[in-house]
Design a protein around this nucleic acid. Structure first.
Lengths: 404, 404
DNA sequence: ACCCATAAGTTCCATTCGGAAACTAATACC
DNA sequence: GGTATTAGTTTCCGAATGGAACTTATGGGT
């Protein structure tokens, strides 16, 4: 319904065989999975191909259960049996289970005030298509219409994930400074306009979750993600779950003080971490207001002034890393973003900042810097859709979980 | 066993009725509970007396399930039916279920280099006895012996919780600066010496968990606990769970910079939050090195010098509160500790600090300041024992949880 | 006083789900 | 080719959960 499928011939003749899984829109409906099958799928999704025995061990399930559950997941087309991997010693070799990525497609959309970035991925969050276009307007209705247009170009997706730089609570964009939105029920609107289940979240939060499922932080119990771009952003995974503040904001560390005599910050004070790291502020301090790339070139060419600004930025980044590590003592700190060249040119100062801030042995911090393509933002939208689809957050209202 | 109960007459005649619950050591054995009964017990423990219907609603269980589970818990002596509470409108009144606190007792022990604090509580963490004595020695074996002596004075406890100011990982005291311990397997040692299942944890972590179950933060999804005493400590609850760093330390925010020209801090730098708040440092700045109480009197009497030191400390506390709130955006910030008079004498400056630091509306912060008796530390040890007993962490090895 | 609406708690029963035991399958090593 | 070893399967059973229908205890209306 809502899909204009009235004209499609009835398919009663299939129902008896394929039953529920195929009743709705052919390729794009997600089967309802109960808890254990969902956990099994997730385990394979996050930790790569695994044998039944391995999964049973990790999830503390019996092998018979795994036989049954795996069979069901294969029947639903979500898993496939891949190669068999011989044991190192004796014993029957394992049959590896893979996620059948092609089974579903997801659309991710990242909104900025100027442009819309889109990416289509398969179930394993591997990109299969991408698009980018100017945002026609910032008015909510028009943005929704534009997203629906994009969605029409990629039919058959199982879910849509939209991310933006604002405060998102339960699918409602409570506040977006850049788009100038207040209380926009984006999730409902896009779901209605496209007919496809949609999830909406803050971009940094979605990126963090994406890195935790599909990136270098896959499956870690604790993880800190720091994005360096036009500004800095932080996301935290604690106890295997994304930390969402009670008001929907991602954790922010960025106005922690580095040096009270530092540059003027947007927040009104001086010398916050973010005052050193915001691209705008950095460039403003340089003669002739170069672009970011020009500034980088100057640094690489040995320019003193630019070097100083980037060194200070690097130090501030180090302080940020150290502060985050002090607070949650994560298994890994992941550094991403378009501004990562900063780490490349002044990694030494970053480490100075860490050393001056972190209260334990800096070697304990597993720091991972990953270069970053801007389309990654859109991909993390798709990852958001995948996550919402699998956990069921996308269709049902989120379950109150009665965990400890 | 180990409790010297050999002389107590056998009670075969009861077994048929009370079955398992009474098979082992009479009053002090904890029945194994499966997940749902455990959740039900917890819900009543944390959220006060509740009716079956109410619990079923909260835990998303059916009413028949609640009938069954409640009956089992009543049989095991953990719950009792209390008063019936009439509906406001029509309908049969609810029968309230209470935790039968008297069913079990727990011993909490807090270790400091000079003294040992002990508290015995019932299952609801209500204190029933307390003791305090000098620590005979800091040597691990002697401390264990002393704890065993204390435990002998309070026979029949179901669990023991020991807390101290060090780094505790899985019952092993990896490092305690104050006691000068490294890698002391305290949990195993006390369990062996007393014959009672024992849990060990960092004191601030245990306090945080205690406040989250039995204090003003009961049952919140997110909570920050800030203790002000000889130093400052921080504990976090996120998503209903205690945040434990991957190396066992509680989160520390206390060396965040407030003012680079501030007092010298133990960490080598100047003007950290903790440099303003450590009692030692505060008193050192005052003429004649008064005691804490004397210093407080001076402030209340209007002494300029003391007022300044306490004002700065208050401001630093505000910065700490704001920083914590920025990071996890908790539902509540709970302020406790022996040093709480600070908040009383300079609450205005605390709020200034919050205002200058928190990036949203300070009114969103639900700040709760609770005066603090030192025996609270020991009580939180008992709460630790309760928590470990109920979650099963005390006997079995912690289950790998396969949650999302 | 009586009946009815309302909501709590219970009983009964069908169903689901996961683990134990015992099996088969596929390999390495001797 | 036999044996040890580990993966995966089948069969079966017990535990636990939720739906339907019931009983119980109240308030409110007539």
């Amino acid at each position: 319904m809502g899909l204009g499928l009235g004209a499609i011939p009835e398919r009663r003749y299939v129902r008896a065989v394929i039953s529920e899984a195929d009743t709705g829109v052919a390729t794009s409906s997600w089967p309802k999975l109960s808890e254990v099958p969902r956990d099994v799928l997730l385990e394979v999704l996050i930790h790569g191909p695994l044998s039944r025995a391995e999964i049973a061990g990790r999830l503390r399930l019996s092998r018979p259960t795994l036989t049954r559950v795996a069979k069901a997941l294969v029947q639903r087309g979500l898993l496939v049996e891949g190669d068999t991997r011989p044991r190192s010693s004796a014993g029957r070799p394992s049959e590896m289970l893979h996620v059948r990525g092609a089974a579903h497609r997801f659309l991710g959309v990242k909104l900025t005030p100027e442009r819309l970035f889109a990416a289509v991925t398969d179930l394993t969050a591997t990109p299969v298509a991408a698009a980018e276009e100017p945002l026609r307007s910032c008015a909510p209705e028009e943005v929704v219409a534009q997203i629906a247009d994009v969605a029409r170009r990629f039919p058959g997706v199982t879910g849509i994930g939209v991310t933006l730089g604002g405060v998102v609570l339960d699918g409602l964009v409570a506040w977006d400074e850049f788009l100038r939105w207040t209380d926009v029920p984006l999730k409902a609107a896009v779901t209605r306009a496209t007919g496809v289940p949609t999830a909406v979240d803050n971009d940094v939060q979605a990126l963090t979750a994406a890195q935790h499922w599909f990136g270098p932080g896959a499956g870690l119990r604790s993880l800190a993600v720091i994005t360096v771009g036009a500004g800095v952003g932080t996301g935290l995974i604690v106890d295997g779950r994304l930390v969402a503040g009670s008001h929907g904001l991602p954790p922010h560390f960025s106005h922690t003080l580095v040096d009270a005599k530092g540059p003027q910050c947007g927040c009104g004070r001086r010398g916050c971490i973010s005052s050193y790291l915001m691209t705008q502020v950095m460039l403003r301090r340089l003669a002739g207001r170069p672009t970011y790339e020009e500034a980088l070139d100057r640094v690489r060419a040995g320019d003193r002034e630019a070097g100083q600004v980037f060194a200070e930025a690097g130090y501030a980044l180090g302080v940020l890393i150290g502060t985050v590590a002090n607070v949650i003592d994560p298994q890994k700190v992941l550094l991403t973003g378009e501004g990562l060249p900063l780490y490349e040119v002044s990694s030494e100062l970053v480490h100075d900042g860490i050393e001056d801030t972190y209260e334990d042995d800096p070697d304990l911090i597993d720091l991972d810097a990953r270069p970053f393509d801007f389309t990654e933002w859109a991909r993390s939208g798709a990852a958001l859709a995948i996550k919402a689809t699998i956990t069921g957050a996308i269709s049902e209202r989120p379950q109150l979980d009665r965990r400890r």
